[in-house]
Amino acid sequence: MGTLRPMAFSIFRKQIFSPTTFLWEVEAPDMAAAAHPGQFVMLRLHEGGERIPLTVADFDRDRGTITMVVKVVGKTTEEMATYLEGDTFQDFIGPLGAPTHIAQKGHVVFVGGGLGVAPIYPVLRAFKKMGNRTTTIVGFRNEQEIFWKDRFEEFSDNLIVMTDDGSVGKKGTTADALKDVLETGVNIDEVFTVGPLGMMEVIAELTRSKKIPTFASMNSIMVDGIGMCGSCRVTVDGNVLFACVDGPDMDAHKVDFKEMKIRQKRFRNEEGVLLQKYHTECRAQTKGVSA
């Protein structure tokens, strides 16, 4: 199928943070003007491509750009990594989802790990600008993977960097860091977390007994992102909610993480096959060029 349309969007800036993490800043003035912290966008590279959701990691209304930080995990993200500054792609949709509720809460703690580090940033900035006290915990594998430390510092009263190997900051997980903060007895009014499901689940468990309102950004598998298909459904307090229209932020104490973790593996086999196929095609292409 497909009404052939021009490649409409171009990569204004690309920055490589590590072999598996990179940033795209894309020109999209209308989207930038409408975007709010906590929302996401979807993109499709070309005809036949998958529509994948990515969090708005930053938006610049003057420059008219949307920034995303992407972690390579499969076919589409790997293909994205091969695009260069100035390259164009087909579809860019958004902003989608409900913005994070930003308010004067008092002391807000942000916890980001893995592909959830960058999405923390615009939310943190907005809470800080509202006059909240902010503690930010970000987790990386090692020193090479660290990015945006200065940006987080700018809006955090207290920034805690954790690495798996202790090469920078403290050794340990983001949950270890939150535990430490909780043990100091400091008052926390709200926690906002983005990252792998397992991490968000642990964070939710840590704040549950203390009854600290905790919101997690649900990265369910999506297709349309506009509430048509139900692929993104999440059970919250026994009710089926759609992450793309009701979220992505959900009450982390009420999310059924067990179900979510199962659903996240829904297409494991097919995704593996697609990646394999992509690698074979790439190899064939490389050979074609060198021959």
Binding site: G48, E50, R266
Partner: peptide, 12 residues
Amino acid sequence: MDGFNHADTPVG
């Protein structure tokens, strides 16, 4: 998403 052409989106 062109599942019948076995495009990038899995059908499951």
